[in-house]
Amino acid sequence: NRKASRNAYYFFVQEKIPELRRRGLPVARVADAIPYCSSDWALLREEEKEKYAEMAREWRAAQGKDPGP
């Protein structure tokens, strides 16, 4: 049972969880929050997504994983 790799979207969703909880939505973990975040993610510009892509690269580097292209 390996841990899933964390991509840019994972970090975006993780950042949104406190806001979703404040709105009273039932989000205990990232998987619960995904349905509420997909439309917001789709509206982000590539420059805005880069922040989360960098977080994912840093996480992979800390895990000793290949950052890929």
Rank of each mutant, 00 (worst) to 15 (best):
R2W: 09
R2Y: 14
R2V: 06
R2S: 14
R2L: 12
A4Y: 03
A4D: 04
A4C: 05
A4G: 13
A4Q: 13
S5G: 12
S5A: 12
S5W: 12
S5Q: 10
S5M: 09
S5V: 10
S5D: 14
S5H: 15
R6K: 04
R6C: 09
R6T: 14
R6L: 13
R6A: 10
R6V: 04
N7E: 14
N7H: 06
N7Q: 09
N7M: 13
N7A: 00
N7P: 06
A8D: 11
A8H: 04
A8V: 01
A8S: 08
A8C: 06
Y9Q: 12
Y9P: 05
Y9M: 13
Y9E: 12
Y9R: 07
Y9L: 12
Y9I: 10
Y9G: 03
Y10F: 14
Y10N: 15
Y10Q: 07
F11S: 03
F11N: 03
F11M: 11
F11Q: 05
F11I: 05
F11V: 04
F11E: 06
F11P: 01
F11D: 02
F12R: 01
F12Y: 13
F12W: 05
F12S: 02
F12E: 01
F12P: 00
F12H: 01
F12G: 03
V13L: 06
Q14M: 12
Q14A: 08
Q14P: 02
Q14V: 06
Q14Y: 09
K16T: 05
K16L: 09
K16S: 09
K16Q: 12
K16A: 10
K16Y: 02
K16M: 11
K16F: 03
I17T: 04
I17F: 05
I17N: 01
I17R: 04
I17S: 02
I17W: 06
I17Y: 01
I17K: 02
I17Q: 00
P18M: 07
P18C: 05
P18T: 04
P18H: 12
P18F: 06
P18V: 06
P18N: 03
P18A: 05
E19C: 03
E19Q: 02
E19Y: 03
L20F: 05
L20E: 00
L20A: 00
L20T: 02
L20H: 00
L20N: 02
L20S: 01
R21L: 12
R21E: 04
R22E: 15
R22K: 15
R22G: 09
R22P: 01
R22C: 01
G24S: 01
L25M: 11
L25F: 07
V27L: 05
V27F: 09
V27D: 01
V27M: 04
V27W: 03
V27N: 12
A28W: 00
A28M: 06
A28S: 05
R29N: 14
R29K: 15
V30G: 03
V30F: 07
V30P: 14
V30S: 07
V30W: 07
V30Y: 10
V30N: 03
A31R: 11
A31F: 04
A31S: 11
A31W: 06
A31D: 12
D32A: 04
D32F: 00
D32Y: 00
D32G: 01
D32C: 01
A33I: 01
A33N: 00
A33P: 02
A33Y: 02
A33K: 02
A33E: 01
A33H: 06
A33V: 03
I34V: 09
I34T: 08
I34P: 00
I34W: 11
I34H: 06
P35G: 07
P35Q: 04
P35R: 12
P35S: 02
P35K: 13
P35D: 08
P35T: 03
P35N: 06
P35Y: 00
P35H: 13
Y36H: 08
C37D: 00
C37A: 08
C37T: 04
C37W: 00
C37S: 03
S38Y: 11
S38Q: 15
S38G: 15
S38P: 00
S38C: 05
S38D: 13
S39D: 14
S39P: 14
S39G: 14
S39F: 12
S39L: 09
D40T: 10
D40N: 12
D40H: 11
W41D: 01
W41C: 00
W41H: 00
W41S: 00
A42T: 15
A42D: 13
A42C: 08
A42V: 05
A42N: 15
A42E: 12
L43K: 12
L43Q: 15
L43H: 14
L44S: 08
L44K: 03
L44Y: 00
L44A: 07
L44H: 00
R45F: 04
R45P: 15
R45Y: 04
R45A: 12
R45T: 09
R45H: 11
E46Q: 13
E46G: 12
E46N: 10
E46P: 14
E46D: 06
E46M: 09
E46I: 06
K51R: 05
Y52N: 00
Y52H: 15
A53W: 10
E54P: 05
E54M: 11
E54W: 06
E54Q: 09
E54F: 05
E54L: 09
E54Y: 06
M55R: 01
M55T: 09
A56I: 03
A56N: 09
A56Y: 15
A56W: 07
R57F: 05
R57G: 09
R57A: 13
R57E: 13
R57L: 12
R57I: 05
R57Y: 07
R57H: 15
R57P: 03
E58Y: 00
E58S: 07
E58R: 08
E58F: 06
E58L: 08
E58A: 10
E58V: 07
E58C: 07
E58T: 05
E58G: 10
E58D: 10
W59L: 01
R60T: 15
Q63G: 14
Q63L: 05
Q63K: 12
Q63H: 06
Q63D: 09
Q63I: 12
G64A: 15
G64I: 13
G64T: 09
G64Q: 15
G64M: 12
G64N: 15
K65W: 02
K65Y: 10
K65I: 13
K65Q: 10
K65M: 04
D66A: 09
D66I: 13
D66E: 12
D66G: 11
D66L: 13
D66C: 07
P67E: 11
P67D: 04
P67W: 07
P67M: 09
P67A: 10
P67Q: 10
P67Y: 11
P67G: 12
P67R: 14
G68C: 09
G68N: 04
G68S: 06
G68M: 11
G68V: 05
G68W: 09
G68H: 13
G68L: 06
P69E: 15
P69K: 15
P69S: 14
P69A: 12
P69T: 02
P69F: 13
P69D: 08
